[in-house]
Amino acid sequence: MKTKNSDKEQPNNPLHGVKLAEILQYLVSEYGWKELGAIIKINSFNNNPTIKSSLKFLRKTPWARTKVENLYLKSIQK
């Protein structure tokens, strides 16, 4: 049976408990869509960007999600 204390389950995962939507909202507020699209070449960041369309793409595309998560980790460690 799993415990409800998720910190014990993944103590070394800095993304544990952080939703993809929260990550994306943080990056958009930090960089803006234009700069985010320049850093990570994803159409949903460059052409009529929305949180909803970007989340849909990121959930289906592992390489893009990894790039977004890595940028988030670098950004919060500044």
Score class of each variant (00 low, 15 high):
residue 48 N to D: 08
residue 36 L to S: 02
residue 70 N to V: 11
residue 73 L to G: 13
residue 57 F to G: 00
residue 50 T to I: 01
residue 29 S to I: 08
residue 48 N to R: 08
residue 28 V to A: 05
residue 58 L to G: 00
residue 2 K to R: 12
residue 77 Q to C: 09
residue 68 V to D: 05
residue 4 K to V: 07
residue 33 W to S: 03
residue 35 E to L: 12
residue 9 E to K: 15
residue 52 K to H: 08
residue 23 I to M: 12
residue 30 E to I: 07
residue 33 W to V: 02
residue 66 T to F: 14
residue 41 K to R: 12
residue 34 K to F: 07
residue 36 L to V: 03
residue 70 N to P: 11
residue 29 S to D: 11
residue 74 K to L: 14
residue 57 F to W: 09
residue 52 K to P: 00
residue 45 F to T: 00
residue 10 Q to I: 07
residue 32 G to K: 05
residue 53 S to I: 09
residue 39 I to L: 12
residue 77 Q to F: 13
residue 6 S to V: 09
residue 27 L to F: 04
residue 9 E to L: 15
residue 16 H to I: 05
residue 6 S to P: 05
residue 32 G to T: 01
residue 35 E to Y: 04
residue 56 K to C: 03
residue 26 Y to M: 06
residue 2 K to Y: 13
residue 47 N to P: 00
residue 45 F to D: 02
residue 39 I to R: 14
residue 78 K to M: 14
residue 5 N to L: 12
residue 77 Q to S: 14
residue 15 L to R: 06
residue 30 E to H: 10
residue 32 G to Q: 07
residue 22 E to T: 15
residue 40 I to T: 01
residue 67 K to A: 15
residue 74 K to Q: 15
residue 23 I to N: 03
residue 21 A to Q: 14
residue 33 W to A: 01
residue 38 A to N: 15
residue 46 N to A: 09
residue 23 I to H: 07
residue 77 Q to E: 14
residue 66 T to Y: 15
residue 77 Q to L: 14
residue 6 S to A: 12
residue 61 T to D: 09
residue 58 L to A: 01
residue 23 I to L: 06
residue 44 S to F: 02
residue 52 K to G: 03
residue 46 N to R: 09
residue 52 K to I: 10
residue 5 N to A: 11
residue 74 K to P: 06
residue 56 K to E: 01
residue 36 L to D: 00
residue 74 K to D: 14
residue 25 Q to W: 06
residue 31 Y to E: 06
residue 1 M to R: 07
residue 57 F to L: 07
residue 58 L to P: 00
residue 42 I to K: 00
residue 4 K to N: 13
residue 17 G to I: 05
residue 71 L to E: 08
residue 34 K to R: 11
residue 72 Y to E: 11
residue 43 N to T: 08
residue 14 P to Y: 08
residue 69 E to Q: 15
residue 31 Y to D: 04
residue 64 A to E: 05
residue 77 Q to G: 11
residue 59 R to W: 08
residue 6 S to M: 11
residue 9 E to A: 15
residue 53 S to P: 02
residue 10 Q to M: 11
residue 59 R to P: 01
residue 47 N to W: 02
residue 70 N to R: 15
residue 52 K to C: 04
residue 64 A to M: 08
residue 40 I to P: 00
residue 28 V to P: 01
residue 74 K to Y: 11
residue 3 T to Y: 10
residue 55 L to W: 03
residue 78 K to P: 10
residue 67 K to D: 10
residue 48 N to Y: 02
residue 60 K to D: 06
residue 41 K to Q: 08
residue 46 N to P: 00
residue 21 A to H: 10
residue 42 I to S: 01
residue 60 K to H: 09
